[in-house]
């Protein structure tokens, strides 16, 4: 799955390279900047992956945690081991968290790498109009990856909970991905504006603040608090469900 994620920036970079110049204002954000500065491949790839592809991979990993073991029958042996139910949940969530950190990082770094290989690299102009050198730009790229990692932690907690509900891993994966899509659809409906700040996907694309000089941390902190709330709520639900679950698979 990490390879699939890495394929996205490669695809973007190659497409831009072989095609003629992209007219400004069309396609995903920053696409028109790639030809001037290869580092933008990373940013563009992350923007493209956020709505579906990253949640999809996270849904697969998080949905598989408990349901995958149950479906395979190994859950009973882990518990008889005895792994301990709380310990198992924590380890499984930690494993998902590692994936959540690595996934955006792969997109960002592959993007920067392929961009640097195919296009010129130079100073980057930020949204605030300031210009930073390429080294500083890579740091910003990593910051965005970290922002996305935090953003996806809430979804992985939801996936963990869904995974404790079923013995069918595919069902848990699909449910998690569907939930992430539903949240984004709700986020797009102006009639539900009161709900928007509470949706786990609401701040997913708000990493623009990290591209200003000086960096504005407001959205980062707000997002982290929201995701923390989701982790607490769905972690508790997963605990409540799993601790009393009859393992019959």
């Amino acid at each position: 799955m990490l390879c699939a994620l890495a394929a996205i920036p490669v695809l973007i970079a190659v497409a831009v390279r072989v095609s003629s110049a992209v007219p400004p204002g069309r396609g995903p954000a920053f696409l028109d900047r790639i030809a001037q500065n290869g580092l933008f491949v990373g940013v563009t790839a992350m923007v493209v992956s956020v709505p579906l592809f990253l949640p999809l991979t996270v849904g697969v990993v998080a949905g598989d945690t408990i349901a995958g073991e149950a479906g395979q029958g190994t859950l009973r042996y882990l518990l008889v081991g005895p792994a301990g139910r709380i310990r198992l949940l924590i380890v499984k969530y930690a494993g998902t968290a590692v994936f959540v950190v690595v996934a955006p990082l792969v997109v960002a770094l592959t993007g920067a790498g392929i961009g640097a290989a195919l296009f010129p690299v130079g100073p980057v102009t930020l949204l605030s109009g300031d210009t930073i050198d390429p080294g500083e730009a890579v740091v910003r790229l990593l910051l965005i990856a970290a922002y996305l990692a935090v953003s996806l932690l809430g979804l992985s907690a939801i996936g963990l909970f869904v995974s404790t509900l079923t013995d069918v891993p595919v069902g848990a994966m699909a449910a998690t991905v569907v939930l992430s899509v539903v949240a984004q659809v709700l986020d797009a409906l102006p009639q539900l504006e009161w709900l928007h700040p509470w949706l786990f996907s609401h701040y997913w694309l708000d990493f623009g603040d990290l591209l200003r000089q000086p960096v504005s941390w407001d959205s980062f902190v707000g997002n982290a608090l929201l995701q923390g709330g989701y982790i607490a709520a769905f972690g508790a639900l997963a605990y409540g469900r799993f601790i009393t679950k009859d393992v019959l698979s």
Binding site: Q72, G73, T74, R76, Y77, V80, P82, G84
Partner: peptide
């Protein structure tokens, strides 16, 4: 006392299951 007892118990339950 599940956590104390299980390490002293070896089990094969309803067929083997492995990765």
């Amino acid at each position: 006392k599940l956590a104390d007892v299980l390490p002293r118990v070896g089990a094969l339950v309803e067929g083997p299951a492995f990765y």
